[in-house]
Design a protein around this nucleic acid. Structure first.
Lengths: 233, 233
DNA sequence: GTCTATACGATGATAGAC
DNA sequence: GTCTATCATCGTATAGAC
């Protein structure tokens, strides 16, 4: 389990002491991620969470003033991991097809590394009131969004936008089929995330844990072929 | 909104009087479907539901002894619609490619007809403790499942099995790529369902309501092409 | 930062009268 | 079938001591 720094935090070495008190907050987020993934937002109780993390209920409310704040922090942490995986991959090298492969593989590998992430992402994507930031271009124009945007939403909008750009370049070069990017993005996201959110259903279908080594390496091949087949000209 | 009969109910004409008291139970299911789709299982209160349907809370508990019973009934009703859509389509005529097209289109059309269905299905698929019935072959052998199966799960297992059979026939005939059926099923289900579960995110990406007439007719084309590309040899 | 104590509303569910 | 009344429990949040 890697330790990640927020993408926008200024990196200075002597902050180390202050930045990482490897303490309660991280443990809360870790446990909460599993619980939210399992039971959804409404299915998790702060009492229950506090007990599992070994803290008092009120100590928990000290770290996260409200339940939704905790939820946002958990979601954002997962997205930071995905962003990190994308940044570490060669998604800007080679032709659009190679970039697509790198993109897909990076997401698959990140979701394969911690089990709750896929389910959590799928829940967040399905839950209502998500992500108008995408249609706004994330602050590209001066129009204020009609409600407070979650950090999580802005981060997701950035990722989706980068993928949309890749799609458009591939279409312009003629290597991808000329498809509406909206539908294509939904196809790819659905395919990528659903496998890792499918839990027991997925296990019943593939015949072993969807997170086992062999299942994941098979998945990397299969999802890449499926998406290439669906997108390439 | 069509009136459907359970697939296994004996069809006799004079049952009509008894079968359809077009009454409270249906109204409860209708409202509950919307609520569960919007807020998930834990996010819906029986008080709230009773108020919206115009009943007392205890009257509600008379129709459905427990909340989970209601939830199962709602899920099953959606699956019955999907089953009905599949039965009405030409999924047994022509070569496997034609059957695949009929299959995909039938599911898309059913999910397009009532908005909560897709979101509800995605939630149910992501929720834990689903569907070991699939690996058991739905009563094909004598082994008892280790817990009570929901009607809903058995019905889903049947649908998934039929699709798995179609995949295997297509692979045997050489018209589909030789892929592991488990991964392929998850790819198709994820692609099919996620679009109709994506709500505001989907709307932001496709530029209009995902249930609008133009969006749905575009979707029928796009998802068919995407899945064909991903599966065909 | 962490704890105990307390409060309030809402929840799922039950019992019994009409 | 539908209602009112009631129950214990939960989620959420606050206040204040250590």
């Amino acid at each position: 389990m890697m330790i990640l720094m927020p993408a926008n935090s200024p990196t200075s070495l002597d902050d180390e002491v202050e930045i990482r008190p490897p303490d309660s907050r991280d443990k809360i987020l870790e446990v909460a991620e599993g619980l939210f993934a399992y039971g959804g937002y409404s299915g998790v109780g702060m009492r229950q969470l506090a007990a599992m993390v070994g803290l008092s209920k009120s100590a928990l409310f000290h770290h996260f003033p409200t339940k939704i704040d905790l939820y946002e922090a958990v979601l954002d942490r997962v997205l930071v991991r995905i962003e990190h995986g994308l940044n570490g991959a060669a998604i800007h090298e080679g032709d659009p097809v190679a970039q697509l492969d790198a993109w897909v593989d990076a997401v698959v590998c990140t979701l394969a590394e911690d089990a709750p992430a896929g389910r959590l992402m799928m829940r967040a994507l399905v839950d209502e009131e998500p992500f108008p930031a995408i249609s706004l271009g994330v602050g590209a124009n001066g129009a204020e969004p009609d409600r407070e945007l979650m950090i999580f939403e802005v981060r997701l909008a950035g990722i989706v936008e980068r993928f949309g750009g890749l799609l458009e370049r591939g279409i312009a070069e003629g290597v991808f089929r000329a498809v509406p990017t909206g539908d294509a993005i939904l196809n790819v996201v659905g395919t990528l995330v659903f496998y890792f959110a499918s839990g027991d259903l997925g296990e019943a279908l593939v015949g072993e844990s969807i997170f086992s080594h062999s299942a994941v390496s098979r998945r990397r091949r299969e999802v890449s072929q499926f998406i290439r087949g669906g997108l390439l000209a």
